[in-house]
Computed example of a mutant assay.
Amino acid sequence: MITHDAGNAPYVVLESVDSGDQHALAERAARFRSVFTAAPAGVVLLGLDGIVAQANPAATALLGFVGDDLSGADVG
Rank of each mutant, 00 (worst) to 15 (best):
R33T: 07
A30N: 10
D5M: 05
A55R: 03
L46M: 14
A59F: 06
P40H: 13
F32H: 15
R31I: 03
V66P: 00
T60H: 04
L45W: 08
D74V: 00
G50V: 00
E27V: 05
A41T: 09
V35S: 11
G20T: 06
G47C: 08
I51G: 12
P40G: 15
L25K: 11
R28I: 01
F32I: 02
A6C: 11
D5N: 11
A53S: 12
S34Y: 06
P57C: 04
L63Q: 03
H4G: 12
L63H: 10
R33S: 14
V35P: 08
G67S: 07
V66K: 10
G50T: 01
D49L: 01
G42P: 08
S16F: 04
L45H: 11
L62Q: 14
F65G: 08
G47R: 15
D5C: 02
M1P: 09
N8W: 13
M1N: 11
E27C: 08
S71R: 07
G50F: 03
R28F: 03
P40K: 11
N8Y: 14
L48F: 11
P57L: 03
T60I: 02
Q54C: 07
N56A: 05
T60A: 10
L25C: 09
T3C: 06
D21K: 07
I2N: 11
F65Y: 15
D5W: 07
F36V: 01
G20M: 05
G50D: 04
R28K: 14
T60K: 03
L48P: 09
I2L: 15
V75M: 09
D21P: 07
Q22D: 10
G47E: 15
G72F: 00
V35R: 14
T60V: 12
H23W: 05
A58W: 09
